[in-house]
Design a protein around this nucleic acid. Structure first.
Lengths: 330, 330
DNA sequence: TTGTAGGCGTTATCAC
DNA sequence: GTGATAACGCCTACAA
C-alpha cells in the first residue's frame, strides 16, 4: 500500500530516483540502486499502475472481440494472443459479444475511454461500419475473418486452397457425390471455401449439384439438420465437407441416427481441428489452422500498430494442414 | 481526444461543473446541464478513465481465475460473472492459469498494482497459501471449489447431496454394481461427492467395492482409461457415476469401443450438464449446477466485498438438478 | 448553483 | 547521477 514517495523518503532519495530504479534507467549508481531496491522490498512497495498509466497515457490492455469463448475454435487463438501480450507487458480483455451490437459498443467504448490500447476482432459477425468508424482513431487488427474494404491489418489462412484441398481429398478416396455444408455466404471465409469446393469438383469433372450445397448457421444443430436434409435426398451424397467441426459433429449424429456408416456410406471432412474432433467416433478428418500462431501473429500485428501508429498495413496468410482421420479413411 | 478542460472552456463553465454533469450530480441547473451535454456531444468528448480511476483509486476491473476457458464447465459461470459485473460498471479479466503457479502470480500482482479491484477464484488447483497471503488485503470470493480454512466468501452446491442423488438414481433403475470415477480427493467437491456415493450405496444395502472407486485426472483421456480399467474387471460394474461430463464422454468412448450398450450393459451418470452432454449418443444423464446463477452470485458477493470491506463473510449454497437422459433410461 | 484549487501516483524535463 | 517540479485527466472539498 505504500507509494513511491514513501519509498523515496525511507531510502533518503527523491521520487525521481526511485522511479529511475523502477524503470531500470541506467543513470543510477549501483549503490543507490541497491539502497532503493532494499527499501522497496522492505516496504513491500508495488508501483500503482493507475498512476503510471495515466502518466504514460496507456492502459497496457488489449481487447479481443469474439462471439463466445465457449466456441472451441477460439481456444488456441486466445492462448496465442495472451502469450504474446503478456510477453510484452499487456493484458488481454476477452469480449464476448454474442454478436450483439450493443455488447460490441460497450467494449469499443473502452478504447475511447483509454481503458484499452487496441483491439483484435475475431468476430465474423462484427458490424463493419462500427469498425470503420473507429479504425482511423485506434489500432485494430482483424483475425481469421476480415473485410478487405476496411484496409486494416489481418491474419488468416488461404481459405480457397483449404476448401480445395479438403474436397480433393474426398475425391482421392473415390467419392463422387460430394456435398458441402457451409455457414453464411456473407462471411468471406465461407465464400472462399465454397469457391475451393467448386474448383475441386470442376477439375475432377464432377457435376455441381445445387442440392448438395447448403448454407446455414454454424452450430451443432444446423449440422445435424442440414445433414438430415442431405440424407433425405433421392440421390444421396457419398461424402460431405463441412465448414466447421462443430457442424461436422452434428452431421455425424444425423448419420448415425440413420444407421449409416462413416466413411463407407458417407465420408466426412470438417474444419478447425477442435479438441472434440479426435474424441468423436469415428475421429474426424479436418483442416487444421495454426490457431496458436494465428493468435500470436494477430497480437504482434496489433502491438506493432500500437507502437508505430502509421506503419504499413500488414496482411498475413498462414499455412493450414489437412489432417486425415477415421471419418474418411478406414 | 478532448479533455474535460476543453469541454469546460468551450461550454463556458468550470471543469467542476462538467464533472458534475458527467457524474449526474443533481446540483446543476438544467440549463447548464443541457449546455454542457451539448458541448460534450459536439466535441465527441469521452471521459478518460485513466484519470478517473487514479483519482478514485479503483480500476473497475475484476479478475476471474480459472484453469482454462476451453473447459465448457466454466462457460455459463463466466457469463454470469460478466453480466453482473457489467451491470455494475465493472469489466472482467479472465485469467487462464493452466494451474501454473507463475501464471497465478502474474494475475494476483494485478491486484497489488491496483489494476484489479477483486478476484473470483474458480480454480480448484489454486495454491491455498497464495490465496491466504492476499486474502487479508484484497476482496476475494471462491466459486464452486473452496477451502473452509480460508474463511472467505464462497458459492457452491451441496456436493454431498448431488453425489447421493446421482447414485440413488442409478439404484432406482435397478443397478447394483455401481462404480465411481472421481477426480483427485484433494478437492473438496471430490471428497463430498464420494461421501454421497457411499451413503447411497450403504442406504441401499449395497456393498462398497474398492475396485469400483477410481481417482484420477479430470479429463477426457482419464475417463476413457479409467473406464477401460473398470470394464476389464472380472466382476464388471453395471453402472458408473463420473464426477464430470468430460470424464463421462471419455467413458462412453471406452464403452462403445467394447461394443457394450448404454444404458443396458452400463448406465452412465455424469456431472455438469455441459453443452456436449446432449450431443452425445446416447445423451448423457447428468447433474446440472445452476452455472449462470453461480457466476452471478459469485460476482455479487465480490462486489459486496469491494464496497463493504468488512461485512460478514457470506457462504451461498445453490440448488442442483438431476437431468435424466438416454444414458440411464432407455 | 458554480468555481477554485489540491491531490490521486507516476513519469519526464529540467536544472544542478 | 540526482533532485525539484510540472504535468497526465479527473474528482471533490471548500469557498464564493
Amino acid at each position: 500500500m505504500s507509494t513511491i514517495e514513501e519509498v523515496a523518503k525511507e531510502a533518503g532519495v527523491s521520487v525521481a530516483t526511485v522511479s529511475r530504479v523502477l524503470n531500470k534507467s541506467n543513470k543510477v549508481t549501483l549503490k543507490t540502486k541497491i539502497k532503493v531496491e532494499e527499501t522497496i522490498k522492505r516496504l513491500k512497495y508495488e508501483p500503482n499502475m493507475l498512476g503510471r498509466n495515466l502518466r504514460r497515457s496507456e492502459s497496457r490492455m488489449i481487447l479481443a472481440l469474439l462471439p463466445s469463448i465457449s466456441n472451441p475454435f477460439y481456444t488456441m487463438i486466445i492462448k496465442g494472443i495472451e502469450d504474446i501480450a503478456r510477453d510484452n507487458g499487456y493484458n488481454v480483455l476477452l469480449c464476448q459479444t454474442d454478436s450483439e451490437p450493443e455488447r460490441e459498443l460497450v467494449y469499443i467504448n473502452l478504447l475511447k475511454q483509454r481503458l484499452a490500447d487496441g483491439l483484435i476482432s475475431l468476430d465474423p459477425k462484427i458490424d463493419i461500419n462500427v469498425l470503420k468508424g473507429i479504425s482511423q482513431d485506434y489500432p485494430i487488427v482483424q483475425s481469421c475473418e476480415y473485410s478487405e474494404e476496411l484496409n486494416l491489418p489481418y491474419v488468416t489462412i488461404d481459405n480457397f486452397q483449404a476448401g480445395y484441398q479438403a474436397v480433393k481429398h474426398l475425391i482421392s478416396i473415390g467419392k463422387k457425390k460430394i456435398a458441402f455444408i457451409n455457414s453464411d455466404n456473407k462471411f468471406i471465409y465461407a465464400r472462399l471455401r465454397e469457391k475451393g469446393y467448386i474448383k475441386a469438383l470442376e477439375e475432377a469433372g464432377l457435376e455441381i449439384n445445387k442440392d448438395y450445397i447448403i448454407n446455414g448457421e454454424n452450430d451443432f444443430e444446423s449440422g445435424q439438420k442440414n445433414m438430415q436434409q442431405l440424407l433425405a435426398l433421392k440421390n444421396r451424397p457419398d461424402a460431405v465437407f463441412l465448414v466447421s467441426d462443430v457442424l461436422a459433429i452434428g452431421a455425424l449424429k444425423a448419420i448415425r441416427d440413420m444407421s449409416l456408416s462413416v466413411p463407407e456410406d458417407i465420408a466426412v471432412v470438417g474444419f478447425d481441428n477442435i479438441d472434440f474432433s479426435t474424441m468423436m467416433n469415428p475421429a474426424l478428418t479436418t483442416i487444421a489452422q495454426p490457431m496458436y500462431e494465428i493468435g500470436c501473429e494477430s497480437c504482434r500485428l496489433l502491438l506493432n500498430r500500437i507502437h508505430h501508429r502509421n506503419a504499413d498495413i500488414e496482411k498475413i496468410i498462414m499455412d493450414f494442414e489437412l489432417i486425415i482421420r477415421e471419418s474418411t479413411i478406414k
